[in-house]
Design a binder for these strands. Structure first.
Lengths: 343, 343
DNA sequence: TTCTCTACTGTGAACGCTCACAGAGCAGCG
DNA sequence: CGCTGCTCTGTGAGCGTTCACAGTAGAGAA
């Protein structure tokens, strides 16, 4: 022995080594690796045994070079960074996507486009074919990156409905309007009649839909819309706090409030406490998301659960379908009311 | 025109196209791409112009096939999943690493090893050479994955000191002991004398060090250690809540408490409020991390800032150095006291 | 002039895999 | 007996890059 395996990394076995070990040709090994059609049982068995003995793992670079696929997908975040840091949903989504992809043995490349330069670099990277498709997270819609990728023909699935891209891009979203309806009905069911709302950003479909659900339920209950009970935020804790203050100033008799995100609801609770209102006795508070933020508050936040686990797995499913040639699709998933103490 | 570029993705230009366009050979283009030594200024200029005109982007698979490098690194998380969801530091670390790598044009592959099967799959993937190195995050130390990777000779940098791996593996960590000292000194400086502590898990270096800092400062102030003032947690909110209850039961006269993580401090605040103690008047509370959790509480949490931005950039720096052949290294970074309302 | 040295450039070969194709063996059928 | 069709197998080519090497041109020294 002139060479030991301590220290340096040994050259891993190739398909050639496996073929020799199994007494077959490269082609047969390759066929076993990719589906195993047109392979005799005995050959397949020999190949699998050889793979186990040699510890062979396919060289994905060599495979990609010829197939043109990279067998990896990008997870692209085009949020301004504050939101990335704050949003407790994000972890859940990222983990869900990673795991759904892992089941297909597909690695996830994390890409964060904060600055303009990063955007360009990432778009170049993606359009060069270094990933097969992109999972896109950017709530600030009308994203130029999304449009560029779509135009380049890159398979793409957005989280939440992107605006301005027509029906040409796939997306997966929770049923925002229905969730909002459930929550407002719940608040009315508690006997509240002066129900306020802190909306999300109204240039996003989610923000618009949740507000629409609120209005629908009030209308169907025969309660008129009072503009003083409607303020808008941007999903951040701070905007929730500010929103609650504006509501209290404009409508001091408010007895419930539907807040379009849990994080904003945290801010609302802070403002209400400061104003001396008890939750839920004086003001019932309903959130949206069922994120970590919802259990971090006291009282615990009654909220609308977004099915992040299903959202992530559906995003992956739709993306992979698109990668293998299927048409774009949209998926809307049902939400669920989660009762805690705040309403 | 028989072929349009709408719909399908065009085959991207190769180094050959660039060479033809620039009127030079493949070799010259390759030299321009990789450092540009031994290339005449005129040739370099022509190549760069051709690259711009053609929109050429290097095919990393082809490059990797021959260099043996993948020019990508893995970000490996071996936490049980609850911690992943809860920990607000995690986002910051992940973002920091992604950006530090982006500056080197190196993509980050996210890998989450929850189950045993995932562990095996990921180790195979890594040891097959599909990434050049691994950024490892796993606070539960003595991780078998880390040991396997180290034994396979994979460049590795851990976040926080891993135990049981000797000095053979690089790590980057904040100065836990010094941070703890700062906080406890601060509490004593407020005139408090009955200072409790909720430690982190004592099978981790971080947990041990923060407790050691606490004890050191009490000793240097001539205050004896009261075991009733010491309880241990696991960094989770729930364990902070439970810890505070045990402390109040065992030492009702406690007038301050050092909590080894912000998340646990959230739980401590909840328990103190329930027990009718005012913060900071009755009990001063100091956290550790300066995570999102610290600003989410009311009162805002006085805490020890861990320099996550520097931790991530140092992890990347040390890893890349190791990839290019340098020896493992350890980096300890200073912490900083951040004053808010809770102490 | 000739030789050496340096700066630069072009050319095969190779990386490890998949794909297309050719061909072998065998069965069924006219 | 040949033809067709099926299952299975091996082989050569080629994916786009880098690397080693050979070779050219020009400058400077002998």
């Amino acid at each position: 022995m002139t060479m030991s395996n301590t220290g340096g990394r040994r050259r891993p076995p190739t398909i050639h080594d496996v073929a020799r070990e199994a007494g077959v040709s490269r082609g047969t090994v390759s066929r076993v690796l990719n589906g195993g059609h047109y392979v005799s049982p005995s050959a397949a068995e020999a190949v699998n045994a050889a793979i186990r003995r040699t510890g062979y793992v396919v060289n994905r670079h060599a495979r990609s070079l010829i197939t043109g696929r990279s067998d990896s997908v990008g997870f692209l975040l085009t949020e301004p960074q504050e939101r990335f840091f704050e949003d407790p949903n994000f972890n859940v989504l990222l983990r869900g996507c990673t795991q759904a992809l892992a089941a297909h043995d597909i690695p996830l490349l994390l890409m964060i486009a904060g600055t303009q330069a990063e955007r360009r670099r990432i778009v170049r990277y993606i359009t060069a074919g270094h990933v097969d498709g992109v999972l896109l997270v950017s709530s600030h819609s009308g994203d130029p990156v999304a449009e560029e990728l779509r135009a380049a023909g890159v398979p793409l699935v957005a989280c939440g409905k992107p605006i301005g891209l027509g029906s040409k891009v796939s997306y997966v979203a929770a049923d925002d309007r229905d969730g909002a309806r459930d929550m407002v009905r719940h608040l009315l069911g508690l006997g509240r009649r002066r129900v306020g709302v802190v909306t999300g950003p109204l240039d996003t479909p989610g923000g618009v839909e949740r507000l629409a659900g609120y209005k629908e339920v009030l209308a169907e209950a025969g309660i008129g819309i009072d503009e003083r009970l409607i303020v808008s935020g941007d999903y951040s804790r701070a905007s929730g706090e500010a929103g609650a203050e504006r509501l209290l100033a404009g409508a001091p008799d408010m007895d419930a409030v539907f807040v379009a995100s849990d994080l904003m609801a945290q801010g609302v609770l802070t403002a209400l406490r400061r104003a001396g209102r008890r939750v839920p006795q004086d003001v019932a508070v309903g959130g949206f998301d069922d994120s970590q933020a919802a259990v971090a508050t006291s009282p615990g936040l009654t909220t609308i659960r977004q099915p992040w686990d299903r959202i992530s797995s559906e995003m992956v499913r739709v993306l992979l379908a698109q990668v293998s040639g299927e048409d774009p699709a949209t998926v809307i998933l049902p939400t669920e009311l989660v009762r805690r103490e705040s309403a």
